[in-house]
Nucleic acid binder design. Structure first.
Lengths: 265, 265
DNA sequence: TAAGACACTTTCATTCTATGAAAGCAATCG
DNA sequence: CGATTGCTTTCATAGAATGAAAGTGTCTTA
C-alpha cells in the first residue's frame, strides 16, 4: 500500500527517508520558508533555516525567481507575483472550491450565519471559501490564512477520531508552527476534541474572541481533510442557535463528500 | 541522449540558456502548465505538453502534491491549496503591494476612478491591486488574471520604448499565450504603443469594451515591470477626463518608483 | 467473458546534474 | 585601512534524475 507521505512540517525532518527529487523538495522547502517568515529573508537566513548550503540555496532562489515565484530586493527575498495566477487557477478550477460555493451560499441563506470551507494543509488548515451571513464577522480573515488544527471548531473536527499517534504528531506540529505553547500536550488536545459519537465540533471564543462556531468534516474514506463551518459573532447567536444549523451543515457536508470521492490529497 | 528542452508547443522563454537546476525548472514548467489549462490535466497530457517523459512527470507531480501545490482526483491533476497561503504571503509582504495600496486609494479618491497596479510576469501582466472608484467597473477582473502586454493601456505602457528585438519577442509570446491571432505583427504592435515622448498610454475599448484607461509605468533603471492605471466605464468618463488624472498618476508612479529601487525581478 | 487497448506505475542501469568546499569578491564596520 | 561579514563563482565528485522497458491495472470491445 502506498504510504501517502505526510508532508514535513518543518525543516527538522530527518527521518532518513529515500526522499526522491531532492532538489525539488529543497526548493519547495525554501519556498515554504519564505512564507513562514512574515518578512523578506536574506540568503544566509534561508540557507540556515532550511539546512542547506549557501550556493544551493542561491541557485534555487534564482530559478524560482526566473518563474516569478520569488522576488528579490537588494539582498532580501520574498514570495513573488506568480503565485497570484496560481491561486486564481486553484480557486477557479478546484472542483471542491467551485462546488462548495453554491452549497455554502445556500447554508448561509438558510441559517443567516457565515459559512466557510477549510482545507487541511500539513499540520495547519486554511480558509478556502467564505460566504458571509447576516451578521458580519468583525475580525477579518481573508483566504489562505494558516490556522491551527488544534483551535477552533473547523480545525478540531478534522482531528476527531484520529489515533493517538497522529494526534501526537499534530501536537508537535502545532507547537512548531507557533500555534501552541511548548507545554501543549496530547491530553490537553484530547480534552478539546468533540466526544466520540458527535459528528460536529463546537467552539466559543477559541480562535477569536466573541466568535462562535460549529463545524463538520467532509468525510470520505480515511481521515478527513476538509471541513465546513458555521460562524457567528457572539451577540448574534447562542450555542443553541448555532447547533440548530448543524443538520443543514450535515447535509452540505454530505453533498460535498460525494464530490470529493477520489481526491487523493 | 542529451535532449535539450526541445518543445515547439509550450511558450517557454528559454532562450538557449545553460539551464541550471533542470529538475526544478521542469517542475515549475509542469506547475505552469497546470495553470495554463483551465481544467484538471491527465498525466500523459502534462508529460506531452511539457516535453518530458511519463515517469519524470509523475515524480514531479508527487513531490508537488506532498507540499500541497498540486491536488489529484482520480487521474487528473490541478493546482493545490498551498498556493493560497503563498498568495497571501505575497500580498502581505511584498513592499510594492503594501506601499501601493494607500497610494492607489489616494489617487482613486482624488480622481473618482478605479486605480490599479499591474506587474509584468513573463510575456503577460497580472492585476495585483485594485481600488475601486465612484463608477464601478461592470466586468469583474479579480486579482491574478493573466492579461496581455499588447492590449490595454497598462500593458502597452510597459512596452513603450522597448527595442524592436524585445518587441518581437513580445509578439511571439502574445501569440503563444493565445492573446493575439497568429498573424499579429511587430508593425501592428508598434502602431498601438504610445508615441515617443509620451509617458502614459491610453486605451479605449481595447481589452474590454466600454472601458477607458490611462496607465503609467513605474520606472526605475531599465525597462519597467510595473504600471499603475486609471480606469473608468465609458459612460462615466471621457478621454479628457481620464487624461486629467495623468498628473496624479504620474505622482503616484514616481512615489512607488522610489520604493522599487533595488528590486531585481 | 476474454482479448485487446490504453494509461499509469515501477524498476534499473547510465548519465549528467546538483552539490558543498574553498577561493574570490564586495560591501560594511571598527 | 584592515578586518569582518555575507554573497557569488568555480570545480571535482557523489549521487540524484532520467527514460527505456517491463509490469500492473482498468476500461473497451467482440
Amino acid at each position: 500500500m502506498t504510504v501517502t507521505n505526510a508532508q514535513p512540517g518543518t525543516a527538522a525532518d530527518d527521518g532518513g527517508k529515500p526522499s526522491n527529487m531532492r532538489s525539488l523538495s529543497r526548493a519547495l522547502e525554501v519556498f515554504a520558508e519564505l512564507q513562514r517568515a512574515d518578512r523578506p529573508q536574506r540568503l544566509s537566513d534561508l540557507a540556515r533555516n532550511c539546512g542547506m548550503s549557501l550556493p544551493t540555496t542561491l541557485r534555487i532562489l534564482r530559478v524560482l525567481q526566473d518563474f516569478g515565484m520569488v522576488s528579490q530586493t537588494d539582498k532580501t527575498y520574498r514570495i513573488g507575483p506568480a503565485v497570484l495566477p496560481a491561486a486564481r487557477s486553484y480557486i477557479e478550477n478546484d472542483p471542491l472550491v467551485t462546488a462548495s460555493r453554491p452549497v455554502l451560499q445556500q447554508v448561509a441563506a438558510q441559517t443567516g450565519m457565515t459559512a466557510s470551507l477549510y482545507t487541511r494543509l500539513g499540520f495547519e488548515r486554511i480558509l478556502v471559501v467564505r460566504v458571509d451571513g447576516d451578521a458580519p464577522l468583525r475580525y477579518d480573515m481573508p483566504l489562505g490564512k494558516r490556522l491551527p488544527l488544534t483551535v477552533g471548531a473547523a480545525g478540531k473536527i478534522l482531528l476527531a477520531g484520529a489515533p493517538d499517534e497522529r494526534l501526537q504528531e499534530v501536537v508537535k506540529g502545532a507547537v512548531a508552527a507557533g500555534h501552541e505553547a511548548s507545554t501543549f500536550s496530547l491530553a490537553e488536545l484530547k480534552a478539546r476534541l468533540p466526544e466520540p459519537g458527535t459528528d460536529y465540533a463546537y467552539s466559543a471564543d477559541e480562535r477569536a474572541t466573541g466568535v462562535l462556531s460549529v463545524a463538520m468534516a467532509i468525510n470520505r474514506s480515511g481521515l478527513p481533510s476538509e471541513s465546513v463551518a458555521l460562524t457567528s459573532p457572539v451577540e448574534a447567536a447562542t450555542e443553541k442557535g448555532l447547533t440548530a444549523g448543524v443538520p443543514e451543515l450535515r447535509r452540505a457536508a454530505a453533498r460535498l463528500a460525494e464530490l470529493l470521492e477520489g481526491t487523493v490529497y
